[in-house]
Design a protein around this nucleic acid. Structure first.
Lengths: 196, 196
DNA sequence: CCGGTAAAAGCAAATATTTTGCTTTAGTGG
DNA sequence: CCACTAAAGCAAAATATTTGCTTTTACCGG
């Protein structure tokens, strides 16, 4: 009757060794989740269905993650992990703008919204933090390039507050997509005050 | 095998008439949820437990809301509804600052975070929109007073982007509480540019 | 290379939950 | 007061979750 399962505290990639059984099985389960998410209704995304697809018994999933929400959250974080550094054109303002616009579009898309909801849906707050750390890091990379050229880009924290936060807020709390014009406006406001 | 229950589209207060049976039962269920949330672990907050507390059969809840998440979302929206207008001291800047600081504190509290998560957790996006509309409206009231006195307060949309969004983003995506100093800083930045 | 060991997976029975078909009740309008 | 509709109750069936115990797997020290 105790509500909390074991929480190994090791986070999404809890595997003894990259080739071990645990890693193999986790990979199979993640793959099953991704495939099922792509295919059918959200209603087909049940622990038993995932287990069957992954060729695993449901209790494995319940024992490792506790709830469907935790599993989906881990999968979403994995999918949100940036796979590359932001493009580098030599013009950091353009890179920043491009990256932010693409970020907003991706997050506002249906799969993007679903991932946000899944990340936030878990009891474990950690995943949400990882997610925003990914964003911070990408912005920091662009910022570091600007600094290296002797420029004065805004602090990453400022960009998080002034661009990322409003974009995510709109996605979460309204049906309206933050479109490119809106994002561009936010960016200009931040860059405009640059010299103050 | 269809995932969506009936969705009457009438939102949280779906009752034929204020004194009718439907309203009575909904009130009993909401009360049961609030009581159980106050009392025990989140794990005790199950549909059967709520039904038992409310003196109702579980299928009533499943038929009206479909899932626990929808019910919790409706209850959270109801609790987030402001019960009074913002204080009016005659100094709109002070009123605004006070209201925003209290808002941030309330949302960052454990119950506040829980309500945010519950509102966002439902499939029905509508509730999140209602929630942010509540906030907007409160800000608008303060703003209207300032305008009535011939002042030039910032647009509500600007406050949403520059203060509410960063505060909520921090609450959702980091463990750190947006403290009074942080909120005050955001407000000053917005008010500082006022005359530009 | 061969057991020994600990952690995790499988299995299956026990619980708990959700869904569903049908019946009953409460509120509405004639 | 009676018929009608919408929602609630009830109970059985279907699903999902939890749990105790067994088996497998990878790692470790000989």
């Amino acid at each position: 009757m105790d509500q909390k399962q074991q929480d190994n505290g090791k986070g999404p990639q809890a595997a003894p060794r990259p080739g071990g059984r645990a890693a193999r099985i986790q990979a199979a389960i993640f793959k099953a989740v991704e495939e099922l998410k792509r295919q059918g209704d959200a209603a087909d995304l049940t622990v038993p269905a995932i287990a069957a697809r992954a060729g695993v018994t449901p209790s494995t999933i319940y024992r490792r993650w506790g709830t469907l929400a935790e599993l989906l959250s881990d999968v979403a974080v994995k999918q949100l992990r940036p796979d590359a550094e932001p493009a580098d054109s030599g013009d950091w303002r353009a890179d920043l703008k491009g990256w932010l616009e693409q970020y907003a579009e991706e997050m506002a898309s249906e799969p993007g919204r679903a991932m946000l909801r899944e990340v936030l849906g878990a009891d474990r707050l950690e995943n949400a933090g990882v997610c925003s750390a990914y964003t911070s890091r990408q912005l920091d990379i662009i910022r570091a390039r600007a600094l290296a050229r002797g420029d004065r880009p805004p602090d990453t924290a400022v960009l998080m507050d002034r661009v990322i936060a409003p974009v995510i807020y709109r996605i979460l709390f309204s049906r309206a997509t933050p479109d490119a014009a809106y994002v561009a406006g936010l960016i200009e406001e931040v860059l405009g005050e640059d010299g103050e």
